[in-house]
Amino acid sequence: MNAGQVGQALADRARKRRRVLDILDAAGRDSLLLTSHTALAWYLDGSRVHISLAGDPIAALLVDRTGDRLITFNNEAERLAAEELPPGVELHTVPWHGQLTDAVGALAGPVGPLAEKSVATELRAARQPMLPGESARYAQLCADAAGAMTDVLSRATPETTEFEVASALAARIVAAGAEPLVLLCNGSSRNAFRHPLATHSPLGRRAMAVVCARRHGLVANVTRWVRFDAGTPDELDAEKRIAAVEADILAATVPGARLGGIFTEIQSAYARHGFGADQWTLHHQGGPAGYAGRDPRATAAAATDDVVVPHQAFTWNPSGPGVKIEDTVQLTAAGTSVLTLDPRWPSSDVNGLPRPLTLQL
């Protein structure tokens, strides 16, 4: 990092620490133990605290009024210290065969730390407004993910298999220093599936690909379609209508709105644009984005009725039979900015935003 980036990182870290101390003040406690991938990546500016993508974090972080103490296993400490930890974080170890919690008592004192799950809502609120440094990292990741989609799908043919698309996307995501958390692809023989894990089936005349890529703890989400003919009238009509559903959702996603209100708009948008009132029940609709694929996934439940704030990121993914649209966006001072944008990909203007079209080859 250059001097400006270092200064920005230090300023961002100080603001994050202040947000956590505010949570402690409100709870009347002196320490908090962060244990989830989402919370750790956010607080540590994207430090990689995993080995297996499917495994638990290899560290826990004790935040108290005197500082930040990371507890990890002795076989992980050297790499974390050399390559991952931001300045000012103390490192403590337990044996590789021990438990991270073994060191917490001695570090936290007799009262013990607040458990992360007990302030999950407050921590989620602390993550919502992205700071300048993480916003810049997120924008670059999203651009890289969108570029990978263009690189791979523009070279596809009807004979290309779904696994070949997924493997090519994985190669580009990893080469960009990111981790492919989700890779989906369906050809024309499997376009009824909303979460299509790849198979050896060829793409045929039309296909969808989905990438969720993580770097610096942040997750970019993007869906793209490609076809090898002019498309049927029904497909072209459905693509326009699902874009209209998304446009209504994005228009409702403004600072001060509540997720519950946006979810109500989602439900009515499907009916308004000819998909039927129950279409929202057939797949999840997305929600706030950032350090988790969705943070949280929006539903009609009161538990996810968060207030939208400036500088927050979102990924909505409305879908219907054979159609879906998905990009990662951020609410900026100038309005909604599409982050997963590649100027090489065909797009159309919808309410002032560039929205992806199906790539026709």
Rank of each mutant, 00 (worst) to 15 (best):
T160M: 14
N221L: 04
S188H: 11
T157C: 07
S319W: 03
T199V: 08
D56K: 12
P255Q: 09
R29L: 07
A156S: 13
S36M: 04
V226L: 06
G7T: 13
V104Y: 04
G187E: 03
Q267H: 01
A103T: 06
G133M: 15
P129A: 06
Y43S: 08
G256V: 05
W280T: 12
V309C: 05
R15D: 14
A247S: 13
W96D: 12
L10M: 14
A176H: 11
G231Q: 09
D45S: 14
H92G: 01
A247R: 05
V20N: 01
R194I: 12
Q5V: 06
F275Y: 13
A209F: 05
V323K: 10
L153G: 04
A125P: 05
L33R: 12
T72V: 00
A333W: 07
P318I: 12
G260I: 06
L32T: 06
L21R: 04
L341T: 07
S167V: 02
L181I: 10
L10R: 14
S189R: 15
M208Y: 09
L91V: 03
A143L: 00
N317R: 13
L359M: 15
F263T: 04
G112W: 04
M130N: 07
S268F: 02
Y138I: 02
Q140M: 08
G320A: 15
D278V: 12
T264D: 15
T340G: 01
D278S: 15
A244P: 02
K240M: 11
E326C: 10
T38V: 08
T253C: 14
L32C: 09
T199K: 09
V152S: 04
G293N: 10
S189T: 15
S154I: 08
L85I: 03
R206H: 11
V165H: 06
D144I: 01
D305P: 07
P95A: 12
E78D: 11
P356H: 10
L114W: 04
P233I: 02
Q360I: 08
T336A: 00
L40W: 10
A171D: 13
S52M: 14
R48S: 13
T150N: 05
V308L: 07
A145M: 03
E116S: 04
P346R: 11
G28M: 13
A238W: 06
G260S: 03
H92C: 02
L184D: 00
R137I: 02
C185D: 02
V350D: 02
A252V: 03
D12Q: 13
G88E: 15
I51Y: 09
V323D: 10
T35M: 12
T304G: 07
R294N: 13
G204Q: 01
P288W: 08
R206G: 00
I262E: 01
A26Q: 09
H37C: 07
A257C: 03
S47I: 09
K240P: 01
S319I: 00
A277G: 00
D248M: 00
W345E: 10
S347P: 05
L24Q: 11
T93H: 03
L61E: 10
A171F: 10
A77K: 03
K324W: 10
T299G: 15
V89S: 11
